[in-house]
Amino acid sequence: MKAHFPEEFMAASMALDVAHTDKLAAFAKEVKAMGIPLLAPDINRSHANFTVERLEDGRLAIRYALAAIKGVGEKAMEAVVAAREKGGPFRSLSDFAHRVDPQLLNRRQIEQLAAAGAFDSLEPDRARVHAGAEAIMRLAQESAEARARGQSSLFGEEAGALAALRLPQVDPWSKRERLQQEQAAVGFYLSEHPLGAYAQALARFRVRSSAVLADPDAGLVEGQVIKLAGIIEGYNERRARQSGDRFGVLRLSDTDGGFELLVFREQLEVARLLVEKNVPILVEAELRRRNGDDEWRLQARSLTDLDDALARLGMRFKLRVVAPEAAEALARSLAQARDGRGVIEVVVPVDAEHEAVVELGRQFAVSPLLAGELARLPGVTAVWEA
Rank of each mutant, 00 (worst) to 15 (best):
P37H: 14
P37K: 09
L38N: 14
A40C: 09
I43S: 07
S46Y: 00
A48P: 03
N49E: 08
N49Y: 01
F50E: 00
F50M: 03
T51A: 11
V52A: 04
R54G: 07
R54V: 02
L55K: 05
E56F: 01
E56S: 14
D57N: 11
R59G: 01
L60Q: 15
L60P: 08
A61K: 08
I62G: 10
A65E: 03
A65K: 00
A65Q: 00
A65L: 05
L66H: 04
L66K: 03
A67L: 13
A68C: 11
I69C: 02
K70V: 15
G71C: 07
E74H: 10
K75N: 10
A76M: 15
A76I: 13
M77H: 03
A79L: 14
V80Q: 00
V81E: 13
A82W: 02
A82R: 02
A83T: 09
E85I: 09
E85K: 10
G87Y: 12
G87F: 12
G88Y: 12
F90Y: 11
S94V: 14
D95V: 03
F96G: 01
H98T: 15
H98D: 13
H98E: 13
H98I: 15
R99E: 07
V100M: 00
D101C: 14
P102H: 12
P102S: 12
L105G: 03
N106R: 02
R107M: 15
R108T: 15
Q109F: 00
Q112N: 08
Q112P: 07
Q112K: 06
Q112I: 08
A114N: 07
A116N: 06
A116E: 09
A116C: 02
G117N: 09
A118D: 04
D120E: 10
D120L: 13
D120I: 03
S121P: 06
L122P: 09
L122Y: 12
L122A: 05
E123V: 02
P124S: 04
P124K: 14
D125P: 10
R126F: 01
A127N: 04
A127Y: 02
A131N: 01
A131G: 03
